[in-house]
Design a protein around this nucleic acid. Structure first.
Lengths: 215, 215, 215, 215
DNA sequence: AATGAATGAGTATTCATTCAT
DNA sequence: CATGAATGAATACTCATTCAT
């Protein structure tokens, strides 16, 4: 759990006002993931961000807008960053999958962003706009990219003739599971998940499971 | 979406009083999954169950207890039913996995119980007791059962030398994904998931991905 | 200032629930007139009505609706009662005016309803709906009735040829002044207004001022 | 509706600093009359006055003081101006009344000052100090002046033997009605009041209604 | 003098919970 | 057993006020 962004003794005007919104959304992401949207009091978000209740309303019209801003900011910011990573790749498709999954772990799975899926899943019904945004901006593009990857593998004779759509789900399911485990049940479990190991095991399974027949 | 358990015009005596708690938990499961715990008003649960607000308190001490009851009742009821299915099995391990997954779809994945994981994931932090209960009663036993299954496969030379713990996660991840998709984002997506097909593709991948080397 | 409608020791269920809305609107009228809409806390309305904060929301969706209900109830209830009084009158027009004004004092001017004009005038801009309602249901009908009265007087040769529209304003102005004085400045003034005497002086002035030339 | 006192593009030094308080009270008068005291945000006053929120506090200790300043400044400024008009008058009393009323329309009724009565009436209970100030500085002196006028008319045999106190109310009521109509309900009504015509009709009524018997 | 970012007291509103019937 | 009117704690949100610049 992060500590308040600034001590009370620090003069408030030394803080860069441009940084405020980010500090607030970071605090909000943390608390929304931890307690859920409805159970997060804006005052707690403010305290965690090191500001007062009123300041949150200086930057976000209301709690819902803060929620949307959290999701948008975190996702949009990282989405671009994530996309470029897979372009212009030359090697084997399996290597590409492997690299994709490691990049994901580095930039998403191991960061606070991994809390977003839990948030979306929990609040989708109450935030249809967010749900559609997430489907349109994250899930569908991601699935298309991965489906293209599978197709590339099939076309190059590396993978057997699988259904690309379905295979995409099989590709991503363990990553989702990692996100959710880390952000909800893990604190109550003795069993500590080792995500990198799981991803390697997953890659292993995929490599063998997707391999085209030898002859 | 279930309709109220009884019409107001229906004579009262046709309602079996013993059925009340189940009608209430069923309504509660539906609404908790749809709106989340905090956003579900007890009055709506009552209305959906066809009883008055006060009646809910006749059977459940408070909202939290209702929540726990929903989870416990739904799970405990089905867990026993689910367990026996895998014992005393003679055939190949892969057939066992195949049967397990189909049974799951029939008794869990395609039923309202599939909403439970979303509920647990969303509310775990606010209901440590439920989180631990779910881990102890569902996740750990399930994982142990499945790990034993993997080990059986390895011991019988059917599977290659995989890490049973990790493989269990790979086994279950697509099932979790199905549950969550169906109960949160699906209503907002054009893309309709075909869970049985996905499970078959998953079994296919597992069969090849776990197969012991030919020689 | 009225005291709370019921003592805390009185069992709450002895109160007739049908009376609640009226008790609440009565309390609200009193406080809205005294403090203005914005300065009246719903909790104070509740206390004065002898109920709790939540109960107000049982009967009125929100503060604005309570405001509208106060105005509508008080006005609509008395409007019908007031109308019949002037129909089927046979005598001289001036007698009719005289009777009208005395009826008004008895049923409006001397009662809490006299607070309504202050309320409307103060909040018209913030409640356009109320403003229009008041104009349509009170002011215009009232003006039309009175204009017809003036015209009757002119037609019967009792009044000189005045402009009926303008004269209506002259007829009503002192009544408005009474309402406003009683409900805003009077408490701070040494000068105690004697409304009946003022109305008589007004009638006197009207009688002479409107009289048709002798020949 | 006044536009901001200065455009943002206008060079700052063209603004006379000494004019600030007046610009602010003018903006405040406008908004207080339009929305009421509680519903007027100081930020809007500042914006309308073309200054920043903080600047308002440079000149007025708080919102209440601003309110009092608005009332005092507007009234005090005009009261002196208004008083001299009636002194040293030689003609008939009715002419004096006539002149007084026309002067009033010119300097008060047709100007933003006409919004003051609505303000006072609406906020008297919340601003006893203002209420007393208004009674002491406006109402009582005004009433005394007018009562003296009536008495002059009676003494000179122009008016019949009326009660001067009561007659003052009859004299002023239409003016109050004009102020209130213009500043609260008029925007919502089809009926456009013609104040000068109303005042003339009023004067007409008064002339005949107050006239001493011919013999 | 002027600014506007920041604060936090004050209120409307919701809804879990109670309890007399 | 069942009801639903009543309660009041909890929280989102507003806006007067402050103060470092």
């Amino acid at each position: 759990m992060p500590s308040p962004a600034s001590s009370r003794n620090e003069p408030r005007w030394t803080r860069r006002k441009e940084a405020r919104p980010e500090e607030i959304t970071a605090a909000a992401l943390h608390l929304f993931v931890e307690r859920g949207f409805a159970n997060t009091r804006l005052e707690d978000v403010a305290t965690l961000a090191g500001v007062s209740k009123g300041t949150v309303y200086l930057y976000f019209a209301n709690k819902e807008e803060l929620f949307k801003a959290v999701v948008r900011e975190v996702l949009v910011a990282r989405l671009a960053q994530f996309r470029g990573q897979l372009e212009h790749y030359q090697g084997s498709t399996m290597d590409l999958v492997r690299q994709m999954m490691r990049t994901w772990w580095e930039h998403v799975g191991s960061t606070p962003i991994s809390g977003i899926p839990k948030l979306i899943i929990s609040e989708a019904r109450n935030f249809p706009e967010i749900a559609r945004f997430y489907i349109d901006e994250v899930i569908r593009p991601g699935q298309e990219t991965l489906a293209a990857l599978i197709e590339r593998g099939i076309a190059r004779g590396e993978f057997r003739q699988v259904d690309p759509q379905l295979t995409v789900h099989l590709l991503t399911a363990p990553m989702l599971q990692i996100c959710l485990w880390r952000n909800s049940l893990e604190p109550f479990s003795q069993h500590k998940l080792d995500p990198p190991a799981l991803l390697e095991a997953h890659l292993d399974l995929l490599e063998r499971g997707l391999a085209a027949p030898k002859d």
